[in-house]
Design a protein around this nucleic acid. Structure first.
Lengths: 220, 220
DNA sequence: TTACCGAACGCACGGTCGTTCACTCAGTGG
DNA sequence: CCACTGAGTGAACGACCGTGCGTTCGGTAA
């Protein structure tokens, strides 16, 4: 089996999700409208509906599709790099670039939908919370793996890694928020500077990290 | 003139805005519904509509009302304190407490509506952007005023203040986001620790700042 | 008293929303 | 060949949306 009927369905689903990811990053997952999507893609409203079963299922599918994009854009490019704080820095660089390049037109997809659903119980919020936990744990794991290589924090300070992960993620997210709201690319430079500052402060070999982040805002 | 008729209108307006601020911090400004609000307050839909002129005007009025709450909760309590990094720290403490106490049930009002409107042009987004700029400038001003007192950064490093303001705000906002999404008060401790770390790193007299933030997550 | 003003109401409007249902049609598996 | 399945259609549904209009009522000012 596989080709023909079901494959056509998968392609349509993919096309729908490409649209909904873009829309949701700007207008939120609640801003998705079956009618609008159908009109955009030249389909019938009921056809789009039937492909996903319900609006909530469409929202969940959109979140999962965005995870896949995020993994391709941010996580996988550095996944095989050698452990160390340089790898953490490259991951952060990828993240800032993912936001800066507007892979999703509204900036980071997960920033938008987290803020939208963070206080609204339900399956969508649960999925978003799970995705964010996974991301947090991944950053912490990379920092943990950098410990023997770069060495930072005293071994008994078990909170150094989550604390540092928290600070890095905070800088990345505000860069996204500030840049999208004010259209100011300088925010990415500030975040990069802050991240490098934190990483160099704990690094056993700071010279392996750049002194300054790449410049995105040409003021000349 | 003044009393009687128009005063009654002002009281109703205040009651409406109290509701809309709460709703918007959870469901967003787009989640406001004239019908719902009217039903909640025992008014007619058209009555609520007439009080504000349009839904967009209601959204704008809600943002401005939230600014007033924010000023009362965060800014004014420390406004007369003596300049210095201690004042900056107290401001950050007030902010974290404002988020933690859920002055707005969905956490920080401006975090919610910024993420909602950051990529959606229009008067509401412009108002939100202006409010955030004002807040940023206030933090930077306090840091600037702390310079002669506490002294930090070389005088020619004109970017030290905005950079530090960016990092402090990033930590505060992620604390709010993480706490609302995951119900985890530990985030406030992490933010406080990060903020104190940054402030103590630049302070001429670090002993005037606490070593650790107050503990909010009782794990015992 | 008379004239006016703003709050608040009731009603109806045009539109959009998510969802349902019966249906066609084409590819799949026995 | 036949039975079946899933993609996609089209019309209709009930609910809710923001908005406009005409009106009522009570407080204000001449």
């Amino acid at each position: 089996m596989a080709d023909g009927r079901v494959e056509r369905g998968n392609q349509t689903r993919r096309a729908v999700l490409d649209r909904t990811m873009s829309i949701a990053s700007v207008d939120g997952l609640e801003g998705l409208s079956l009618g609008k999507i159908a009109a955009d893609l030249g389909l019938s409203k009921s056809g789009v509906f039937a492909l996903f079963g319900s609006k909530e299922d469409l929202q969940l599918a959109t979140v999962r599709a965005a995870v896949d994009v995020f993994l391709n854009e941010v996580v996988r490019p550095v996944h095989r790099d050698p452990d160390g704080l340089s790898k953490v820095w490259r991951l952060c660089e990828r993240w800032l670039d993912y936001s800066r390049r507007r892979v999703f037109p509204g900036g980071c997809f997960f920033y938008a939908v987290s803020a939208e659903f963070d206080a609204r119980p339900g399956p969508v919020r649960d999925e978003i919370a799970k995705v964010r936990s996974d991301w947090t744990r991944y950053v912490e794991r990379l920092l943990d793996e950098a410990r023997p290589a770069g060495g930072f924090g005293s071994p008994e300070d078990t909170d150094a890694v989550p604390q540092l992960a928290f600070e890095l993620m905070a800088l990345m997210e505000l860069a996204n928020a500030h840049s999208v709201l004010h259209g100011d690319p300088l925010a990415y430079e500030r975040a990069g500077r802050g991240i490098l500052g934190r990483l160099r402060a704990v690094a056993a070999a700071p010279e392996e990290l750049p002194e300054r982040p790449p410049v995105f805002s040409s003021s000349s």
